[in-house]
Amino acid sequence: MDKSDYQRLAHFRHRLRRFLRNSELLCQVNGATALQYQLLLQIRGASTCDWATVGELAEHLQSKHHSVVALIDRCEIMGLVERRPGREDRRQVEVHLLPAGEELLARIAALHQEEVKLLREELSLPGWEIKPLTAAD
């Protein structure tokens, strides 16, 4: 890798961290944590269904199963989600958004759109390709 590769990578990490920090603030102002927002977003957006299993959520959040269960517990207490027995496999639990969760998710997601647009434009500029490492590297 040469200097420009490191510069692009450093800039990408900076922009990613700035996006995440802004996201944390947007969530906080709207009465949620960043993790609660991510849970709602994954339920709504990461599955072909309008619900997700705890295992799917753990994978998408890159978190341990028990940590996701605790997060779901907190969101359930807040009236954002509810658990339902699996339709096809009763051993699985489906996590569904409730109307309050849908509304919170829509509000916070809308606030992210401008920053997402800027990131998309910036990171799709020519020269932003980061060369993959090879065995020689």
Rank of each mutant, 00 (worst) to 15 (best):
L111E: 13
Y6F: 13
E103L: 12
V68S: 00
S67K: 14
C75W: 07
K64H: 11
R120H: 04
E102K: 14
Q36H: 04
L20I: 03
W128T: 05
R13Y: 04
C27E: 02
G45S: 12
L16N: 11
R107Q: 14
E56R: 10
V116W: 04
A70R: 14
A46I: 03
R120I: 00
E115C: 00
A110P: 06
L61G: 02
P126G: 06
D50W: 07
Q62V: 13
V69P: 05
N22R: 07
E121N: 13
D73T: 15
R44P: 04
V54L: 10
G127I: 02
G86Y: 14
E56A: 15
P99M: 06
D5I: 13
L9D: 01
S23Y: 00
Q62P: 01
Y37S: 02
I43V: 09
I43W: 05
H14Y: 08
T48S: 09
S63K: 13
T134M: 08
Q7W: 07
R13K: 04
P126I: 03
F19L: 01
A109R: 08
P85N: 14
T53R: 00
V95H: 04
R74V: 11
Y37L: 05
R87A: 09
D89E: 14
L80P: 01
R8H: 03
R83V: 11
L39Y: 03
L39C: 06
E59R: 10
S23P: 02
E82Y: 15
H14V: 05
F19R: 03
R120D: 03
A135N: 11
A106H: 12
R90S: 09
V69D: 10
S67E: 14
A34I: 04
H66D: 14
L105S: 01
Q62G: 09
G55A: 07
R74M: 08
L111T: 08
D5S: 13
L61Q: 01
H11W: 10
E56S: 08
V116A: 12
S63N: 15
E103M: 13
I77H: 15
Q36W: 02
Q62E: 08
L119M: 12
D73F: 12
L80M: 07
H66V: 09
H11S: 14
E114R: 14
L98I: 08
A58C: 01
P99G: 12
G127C: 01
S67L: 10
R17A: 08
R8I: 09
V54C: 05
A136V: 07
Y37M: 06
R87C: 15
P126C: 04
A32P: 00
L104Y: 02
E114D: 13
R15V: 01
G55W: 13
R21F: 02
A100Q: 15
G79Q: 12
A52K: 04
V95L: 05
D89L: 12
N30P: 03
E129K: 12
L118I: 07
E24C: 02
Q113H: 09
E88L: 15
E114N: 08
E129R: 14
R107N: 13
E59T: 11
R13H: 05
A135H: 11
A106G: 10
Q62Y: 03
R8Q: 06
L111M: 11
K3S: 11
L98K: 11
P132L: 10
L71R: 03
I130F: 07
L25F: 04
E115L: 07
Y37T: 00
R21W: 04
R84H: 15
V69L: 15
T33S: 08
D73M: 08
